[in-house]
Amino acid sequence: EPELVFKVRVRTKDGRELEIEVSAEDLEKLLEALPDIEEVEIEEVEP
């Protein structure tokens, strides 16, 4: 069974934007590691 992958769009407080694809596990780590995120948009990517 393929692992869930999420497309994550992040905007930081200083206005930088970042778009990455991460696994569910990595997404959890990412959110814990970035306390200064202003906006996060997450969508599931079809395998």
Score class of each variant (00 low, 15 high):
residue 39 E to V: 15
residue 33 A to R: 10
residue 29 K to H: 05
residue 37 I to R: 05
residue 27 L to K: 01
residue 40 V to M: 11
residue 4 L to D: 02
residue 30 L to I: 07
residue 28 E to W: 15
residue 12 T to W: 15
residue 39 E to G: 09
residue 40 V to R: 02
residue 46 E to Q: 13
residue 14 D to A: 04
residue 42 I to C: 12
residue 32 E to D: 08
residue 45 V to W: 09
residue 12 T to K: 03
residue 13 K to Y: 04
residue 46 E to D: 10
residue 42 I to F: 06
residue 18 L to T: 04
residue 10 V to M: 07
residue 30 L to Q: 01
residue 2 P to W: 09
residue 46 E to S: 12
residue 46 E to Y: 14
residue 30 L to T: 05
residue 28 E to V: 12
residue 5 V to P: 02
residue 37 I to C: 12
residue 41 E to M: 12
residue 40 V to P: 02
residue 16 R to K: 07
residue 25 E to M: 13
residue 17 E to S: 10
residue 5 V to H: 09
residue 37 I to S: 06
residue 12 T to Q: 04
residue 43 E to Q: 10
residue 2 P to Q: 08
residue 47 P to A: 09
residue 20 I to L: 10
residue 43 E to V: 13
residue 17 E to R: 11
residue 43 E to N: 08
residue 25 E to L: 12
residue 15 G to A: 01
residue 3 E to D: 09
residue 23 S to A: 08
residue 2 P to F: 09
residue 13 K to C: 14
residue 7 K to T: 03
residue 47 P to F: 10
residue 8 V to H: 00
residue 46 E to C: 12
residue 31 L to V: 03
residue 39 E to T: 13
residue 42 I to L: 05
residue 4 L to R: 14
residue 8 V to F: 04
residue 27 L to M: 04
residue 33 A to Y: 09
residue 20 I to G: 01
residue 10 V to L: 11
residue 12 T to C: 08
residue 27 L to T: 00
residue 20 I to C: 11
residue 36 D to M: 05
residue 42 I to A: 03
residue 14 D to N: 06
residue 17 E to C: 15
residue 21 E to N: 09
residue 43 E to Y: 14
residue 29 K to V: 04
residue 7 K to C: 08
residue 21 E to K: 09
residue 25 E to G: 11
residue 17 E to L: 15
residue 35 P to R: 15
residue 12 T to V: 04
residue 6 F to W: 04
residue 17 E to D: 06
residue 33 A to N: 11
residue 10 V to D: 00
residue 39 E to Q: 10
residue 21 E to W: 15
residue 4 L to P: 06
residue 40 V to F: 12
residue 46 E to I: 13
residue 29 K to A: 09
residue 45 V to M: 10
residue 13 K to R: 10
residue 12 T to L: 15
residue 33 A to K: 06
residue 36 D to F: 08
residue 7 K to P: 02
residue 13 K to T: 06
residue 6 F to N: 01
residue 25 E to T: 12
residue 32 E to N: 12
residue 42 I to P: 02
residue 17 E to V: 15
residue 32 E to Y: 13
residue 25 E to C: 10
residue 5 V to M: 13
residue 34 L to V: 05
residue 46 E to N: 12
residue 43 E to S: 11
residue 42 I to S: 02
residue 31 L to K: 03
residue 9 R to L: 03
residue 22 V to Y: 02
residue 19 E to M: 12
residue 4 L to V: 09
residue 38 E to H: 08
residue 34 L to W: 12
residue 3 E to K: 14
residue 27 L to G: 01
residue 37 I to A: 10
residue 3 E to M: 11
residue 1 E to A: 12
residue 6 F to S: 01
residue 43 E to C: 11
residue 21 E to Q: 11
residue 6 F to Q: 00
residue 9 R to W: 03
residue 32 E to T: 10
residue 43 E to P: 03
residue 10 V to T: 01
residue 15 G to R: 02
residue 38 E to F: 13
residue 10 V to Y: 15
residue 22 V to E: 00
residue 24 A to S: 06
residue 25 E to I: 11
residue 37 I to F: 12
residue 25 E to W: 14
residue 11 R to V: 06
residue 24 A to G: 06
residue 38 E to V: 12
residue 25 E to H: 12
residue 10 V to P: 00
residue 26 D to Y: 08
residue 41 E to G: 04
residue 14 D to Q: 04
residue 39 E to Y: 14
residue 40 V to L: 11
residue 29 K to W: 09
residue 9 R to S: 01
residue 21 E to G: 02
residue 1 E to S: 13
residue 30 L to A: 04
residue 5 V to R: 15
residue 6 F to R: 03
residue 38 E to T: 09
residue 34 L to R: 05
residue 41 E to K: 09
residue 9 R to V: 03
residue 11 R to Q: 03
residue 6 F to D: 00
residue 12 T to Y: 15
residue 38 E to D: 10
residue 30 L to C: 06
residue 47 P to I: 11
residue 10 V to Q: 00
residue 16 R to E: 04
residue 35 P to V: 14
residue 21 E to F: 15
residue 14 D to P: 01
residue 44 E to L: 15
residue 2 P to H: 09
residue 22 V to T: 03
residue 43 E to H: 11
residue 11 R to G: 00
residue 23 S to N: 10
residue 21 E to I: 15
residue 41 E to V: 12
residue 34 L to E: 03
residue 31 L to A: 02
residue 13 K to S: 06
residue 39 E to A: 11
residue 15 G to N: 03
residue 33 A to F: 11
residue 2 P to R: 13
residue 42 I to Q: 02
residue 45 V to P: 05
residue 40 V to W: 13
residue 7 K to A: 02
residue 32 E to L: 14
residue 45 V to G: 05
residue 42 I to E: 02
residue 44 E to H: 09
residue 46 E to A: 11
residue 27 L to D: 00
residue 33 A to L: 11
residue 38 E to P: 03
residue 31 L to W: 08
residue 15 G to D: 01
residue 32 E to V: 07
residue 26 D to F: 09
residue 46 E to F: 12
residue 16 R to A: 05
residue 32 E to R: 14
residue 10 V to R: 01
residue 31 L to E: 01
residue 5 V to T: 08
residue 42 I to W: 11
residue 5 V to A: 06
residue 18 L to F: 15
residue 42 I to Y: 06
residue 33 A to V: 07
residue 3 E to L: 10
residue 38 E to N: 05
residue 23 S to P: 05
residue 18 L to S: 03
residue 16 R to C: 13
residue 13 K to M: 07
residue 11 R to Y: 05
residue 25 E to K: 13
residue 24 A to W: 13
residue 39 E to D: 09
residue 15 G to F: 01
residue 7 K to L: 08
residue 20 I to T: 03
residue 17 E to F: 14
residue 14 D to K: 04
residue 40 V to C: 14
residue 9 R to M: 02
residue 16 R to T: 07
residue 40 V to I: 13
residue 31 L to N: 01
residue 4 L to Q: 08
residue 6 F to A: 01
residue 16 R to Y: 07
residue 13 K to E: 03
residue 13 K to W: 04
residue 24 A to H: 06
residue 1 E to Q: 13
residue 14 D to E: 04
residue 28 E to R: 14
residue 45 V to Q: 06
residue 10 V to W: 15
residue 35 P to G: 15
residue 10 V to K: 00
residue 37 I to K: 04
residue 21 E to L: 15
residue 28 E to Y: 14
residue 20 I to Q: 02
residue 26 D to Q: 11
residue 35 P to C: 14
residue 34 L to G: 03
residue 31 L to R: 04
residue 1 E to V: 12
residue 6 F to M: 04
residue 22 V to K: 00
residue 2 P to D: 06
residue 37 I to N: 06
residue 17 E to K: 09
residue 1 E to R: 14
residue 13 K to I: 05
residue 45 V to R: 07
residue 25 E to F: 14
residue 31 L to D: 01
residue 14 D to H: 05
residue 37 I to L: 08
residue 37 I to Q: 04
residue 39 E to M: 14
residue 25 E to P: 07
residue 10 V to N: 00
residue 22 V to F: 03
residue 31 L to Y: 04
residue 30 L to K: 01
residue 44 E to Q: 11
residue 7 K to V: 06
residue 18 L to H: 05
residue 7 K to Q: 03
residue 33 A to D: 07
residue 9 R to G: 00
residue 28 E to G: 09
residue 1 E to M: 12
residue 6 F to I: 04
residue 13 K to H: 05
residue 11 R to C: 08
residue 23 S to Y: 08
residue 9 R to Q: 00
residue 18 L to A: 03
residue 16 R to S: 05
residue 39 E to C: 12
residue 30 L to D: 00
residue 43 E to L: 15
residue 40 V to S: 03
residue 30 L to H: 02
residue 44 E to T: 10
residue 6 F to P: 00
